[in-house]
Amino acid sequence: MTDPTGIVSPDELFAVDSLLSDEERDIRASVRSLVERSFAPRIAGWFESGRIPAAELARELGDLGLLGMHLHGYGCAGTSAVAYGLACLELEACDSGLRSLVSVQGSLAMFAIHTYGSEEQKERWLPEMAAGRAIGCFGLTEPDFGSNPSGMRTAARRDGDDWILTGTKMWITNGSVADVAVVWARTEQGIAGFVVPTDTPGFTANPITSKLSLRASVTSELVMDDVRLPSSARLPGATSLRAPLSCLNEARFGIVFGALGAARDCLETAVDYARTRVQFGRPIAGYQLTQQKLADMSLEYGKGLLLALQLGRRKDAGLIRPEQISLGKLNNVREAIAIARAARTILGANGITTEYPVLRHANNLESVLTYEGTSEMHTLMIGQALTGESAFR
């Protein structure tokens, strides 16, 4: 909004609010209020300690209806894709770890059960997960297979009416605090998904603690050592690798918006700092080089937000294509990192401390650039769409 001095926000430069419905603005405001009231005052401490109160956060997020908010039924809010994206943006304006918790819960674990699960699985897990009373994780990535999930070694074999699940998954958000894991494995018939309660014998989740990024997020290794599951644990609608890949596209869509939240927080921090930091007798906001940085950062943030809104409208219309999500993820995360780094230069040495959020955001975005498809993979997906030629093999 314009203040009495004539200063405008980056959102106002692009007249973003005029592109949103009243409901979308209300949801955005509700999430921003929760973040400012409950999460923002504590996030620097969580990042520094490498610990978060995951169960508490899940309950608060569930109380506001943010977990699986874009899904319908089973206690889910059934909002639009754009509203979900705006929620992701506001969460990541605080920290990527918060958005990751919501993305993994709603767009990976819950979406997999909602889309491919049996009625029994949906009724058992989705209401509890939507309320934040149960936390989910999504086991696809393995130590040796990230960008190439078709090479996974985790296997499930039949033993009478049961399945025996064996293997290891790596870099799993929510893993060691999850009540249920959606685990993907190779079977004789192809790739299959399984709903695995984490208290099942043989299932172990080991926290990964040596992180310089996403420290305010739970990251784990999952180990399945002859985990015996009933036949009802299999996701009946998931019959190929297309199933987990469709889940990844759901999560990638949230990142398209979410990364811009980190960018906005860095940009706003840099503007506020520049207006009050005095060098050579005047605020550094009055110097041309600083204004050029702020103008360039605002341009890339605004263009990214317009792209995100366009993709959100297409998703709500059922028209979005995977390569379009790749466009959004590649561009917006890449530009968000550039904005965070430029903001740090404006803050100088102060920018490296946890007193300000910019380097925390930059560190987090290094992980966001990699997960749910690396920048290289999204580049090749766009290249394949443009040329008809696959460069993956």
Score class of each variant (00 low, 15 high):
residue 5 T to R: 13
residue 302 G to Y: 03
residue 167 G to Y: 00
residue 99 R to E: 14
residue 241 L to H: 06
residue 17 D to P: 03
residue 314 R to C: 04
residue 232 S to D: 15
residue 123 E to Y: 05
residue 268 E to Y: 08
residue 297 M to D: 04
residue 54 A to M: 13
residue 60 E to F: 03
residue 44 A to L: 07
residue 352 I to H: 11
residue 77 A to M: 12
residue 259 A to V: 05
residue 239 T to I: 11
residue 316 D to N: 05
residue 202 G to F: 09
residue 71 L to F: 00
residue 332 N to S: 02
residue 40 A to V: 12
residue 350 N to I: 09
residue 91 L to N: 04
residue 237 G to A: 05
residue 370 T to M: 14
residue 170 M to D: 15
residue 143 P to R: 10
residue 285 A to C: 10
residue 31 V to W: 05
residue 205 A to F: 01
residue 258 G to R: 02
residue 320 I to Y: 01
residue 228 R to S: 04
residue 245 L to G: 05
residue 205 A to Y: 10
residue 322 P to D: 10
residue 72 H to E: 13
residue 55 A to N: 11
residue 309 L to V: 03
residue 339 I to N: 13
residue 144 D to E: 13
residue 171 W to H: 06
residue 159 D to L: 10
residue 199 D to F: 01
residue 14 F to I: 14
residue 127 P to E: 12
residue 101 L to P: 04
residue 30 S to Q: 14
residue 162 D to E: 10
residue 245 L to N: 10
residue 325 I to A: 00
residue 122 K to I: 04
residue 101 L to T: 01
residue 67 L to A: 05
residue 197 P to G: 04
residue 229 L to C: 09
residue 10 P to L: 02
residue 276 T to C: 09
residue 75 G to A: 06
residue 358 V to K: 01
residue 258 G to W: 00
residue 57 L to E: 12
residue 138 F to L: 08
residue 116 Y to E: 02
residue 325 I to R: 05
residue 259 A to R: 02
residue 340 A to P: 03
residue 192 A to F: 00
residue 218 V to P: 02
residue 255 I to W: 01
residue 322 P to W: 07
residue 315 K to L: 12
residue 152 M to Q: 08
residue 277 R to A: 15
residue 368 V to R: 11
residue 319 L to F: 00
residue 94 C to N: 07
residue 68 G to L: 04
residue 342 A to G: 09
residue 24 E to I: 01
residue 304 G to Q: 06
residue 176 S to Q: 10
residue 111 F to R: 14
residue 136 G to Q: 01
residue 203 F to M: 06
residue 214 L to R: 13
residue 206 N to P: 06
residue 48 E to D: 15
residue 330 L to P: 06
residue 96 S to V: 06
residue 30 S to Y: 08
residue 378 H to Y: 09
residue 132 G to Q: 08
residue 227 V to T: 06
residue 40 A to C: 07
residue 177 V to E: 08
residue 189 Q to R: 14
residue 74 Y to C: 05
residue 149 P to R: 08
residue 239 T to F: 14
residue 303 K to C: 08
residue 87 A to D: 05
residue 104 V to D: 07
residue 35 V to P: 01
residue 231 S to C: 11
residue 393 R to P: 11
residue 147 S to T: 12
residue 307 L to C: 10
residue 383 G to C: 11
residue 107 S to V: 07
residue 14 F to G: 11
residue 42 R to A: 11
residue 257 F to A: 03
residue 123 E to V: 07
residue 192 A to K: 12
residue 1 M to F: 11
